[in-house]
Design a protein around this nucleic acid. Structure first.
Lengths: 247, 247
DNA sequence: AAGTGGTCTAGACCACGTA
DNA sequence: ACGTGGTCTAGACCACTTG
C-alpha cells in the first residue's frame, strides 16, 4: 500500500486567478521544493477534485498542464506519479540572466554599444519594419565574477526600446515587462565557429577557439517580433540545456 | 469584412481516434500545406463546433492544442488567427535523420562500432541499471552525399537494442517503433569544443576546429530511459534550430 | 449591445490495468 | 469487478473588444 501525495492548497474562489492555475502553481512549487519525491504516487483525480471542491474537468485541466510541463506522468488504470527527477528541467525560454540567477550566480552586464541605426533589408524584414527605418542596436557583455561569458548583440524595435540605464541594471526581458511586452516564443539557431579577433578579445579567449553562437528571433503571443539576437558564448562557461517533447 | 477560414473535415464518430485529434491533425496539415495563410482569421469556435457537430469544450480542446504548438493565436473579444509564418517551426524532438529527410536530403548511416560493454557507473546511473551490467554501445557516422555530418555515439538498454542491420537502414527512433517504444521527451545539452584527432578524421575536418556537441538522455512517456547519446556535428553542415515557448 | 474567447460545472460513458 | 485516467456533452457565466 502506497500513500499518495495530497497537495495542500486553499482555493480562493474570489481571486481573479483561474482555479486550475491556483492548483498548477503550488503543485509545481511542491515538486520544486521536494515536498513530493520523484516517482511518488499522487492522489487520484476524483478524490482530489472532491477534496479541493472543484469539478473534475477543472482539476484535470490543472493536472494536464503539469503533464505538459513534464512534471507528472499519468497512466490509465494505474494512476498519476511525479515524473522521474531527471526529466525536471525548465522548458522555459532561456534568458541567460535568469539562468544564471537561478544557478545562484550574480551576473553583471556592460553595455558597450547603444545606437540607433538604419535597418538593413534583412533586419527590417525580420522586425517587420521598412528597410532603412531606425532600429536600436545594442551590444552587451555579460560577465560573471569579471569573467566575460557572452557577447549579446540585439536589434530592437524603437517603440519598445529600453533605455541605456535599464539595460545596465536588468536583463532584456525584464526591461520589456513595464512596457507590457511579454515574450511568448522564439526561434533559435545554435551553432559554432572560431572566435573572431574582436570576439576573442571581448570574451578573453584565444582567437580561433570555438565559440557557441545563438541567433534568436523572439515573438509576443500575438506574433509580434520584439527582438533579434546574435549572441556569442564562451563554451567553457556556458552551454545550452533544455528539454524537448514530442507531439 | 474578412472571411474566416473554415476547416473542411469529416468527423468519424466510430473511429478510435479522439474527436479533438480528428480536428487537430487536419488543421495542422492545412496550415503546413498553405491552405490557410499565416495571419488569416479563423472561424469562431461557436460556429465551428456547431458546423462540425461537436461540443464546444471538445472543439476548444483541439484549438488549444494548436495554440500550444504555436500554430494559432487567440485573443478574447477578437478571434482566432493562424500564427505568423515565422513562428512555424517543428517543436519536435529533433531526430537528425528526420530533419534531413524533411529537408529533402537522403542521409546514409554507417555503423562503425557495435558492441555490448559493461556499463560504467555513470552510464549505469543514467540508464537505471546496475553498474557493470551490459549495455549496447553503438557508434555511427551519418553522411550526406558522402560528406560526414555527424558522429553518433549511443548507449542503449539491451532489452530494446536494435540489431546491427536495423541501425544501418533506419534512424534509431525508427528502430524503437516496432518494439512499441516511443520517445516522449529528452534532456539535451549543446556545447562546442575543438575536434579531437579521431573526430577530425571521421568528420573530415581540421584537428582542433570547432565541432558542435550534443548530449542527450531520452525518456518514454512513463519516464523510462531508452537512450544516452553523445553526438558530435560538423558545424558547417548542421546547426540546431528550434522554437521555445514560455510558460 | 453584440460577439469573441476564457472559465467552470455535473455528469455520462469508455478504455485500460489490476486483482 | 473495480478503480484508474481519457473523452465528450450541454450549458452557464464571465471578461474583453468593437460598433
Amino acid at each position: 500500500m502506497e500513500t499518495p501525495f495530497q497537495l495542500e492548497v486553499n482555493i480562493d474562489r474570489d481571486s481573479t486567478i483561474p482555479l486550475y492555475q491556483q492548483i498548477v502553481d503550488p503543485f509545481e512549487d511542491a515538486i520544486a521544493q521536494g515536498l513530493v519525491s520523484p516517482g511518488q504516487l499522487v492522489e487520484d483525480e476524483i478524490s482530489m477534485a472532491k477534496r479541493l471542491d472543484v469539478s473534475r474537468p477543472t482539476l484535470r485541466r490543472a493536472l494536464q498542464e503539469l503533464v505538459n510541463r513534464g512534471l507528472l506522468v499519468r497512466r490509465r488504470g494505474i494512476g498519476t506519479r511525479v515524473a522521474p527527477s531527471q526529466i525536471h528541467r525548465p522548458v522555459e525560454l532561456s534568458s541567460l540572466n535568469h539562468d544564471l540567477v537561478e544557478a545562484g550566480y550574480t551576473p553583471s552586464t556592460r553595455v558597450t554599444s547603444y545606437q540607433v541605426v538604419p535597418s538593413s533589408d534583412e533586419v527590417a524584414k525580420d522586425l517587420g519594419i521598412n528597410p532603412g527605418e531606425g532600429t536600436l542596436h545594442v551590444i552587451r557583455i555579460r560577465s560573471i565574477d569579471d569573467r566575460p561569458l557572452a557577447i549579446l548583440r540585439n536589434y530592437l524595435p524603437l517603440d519598445i526600446a529600453p533605455s541605456w540605464g535599464e539595460l545596465h541594471e536588468k536583463g532584456l526581458y525584464e526591461c520589456f515587462a513595464p512596457r507590457d511586452i511579454k515574450v511568448a516564443s522564439a526561434n533559435q539557431t545554435i551553432g559554432t565557429r572560431p572566435a573572431t579577433e574582436e570576439e576573442a578579445e571581448m570574451l578573453k579567449v584565444a582567437v580561433g577557439s570555438p565559440v557557441l553562437t545563438m541567433d534568436r528571433i523572439a515573438f509576443t503571443k500575438e506574433g509580434r517580433v520584439v527582438e533579434l539576437g546574435n549572441h556569442v558564448y564562451n563554451p567553457e562557461l556556458y552551454s545550452f540545456r533544455f528539454t524537448v517533447f514530442t507531439n
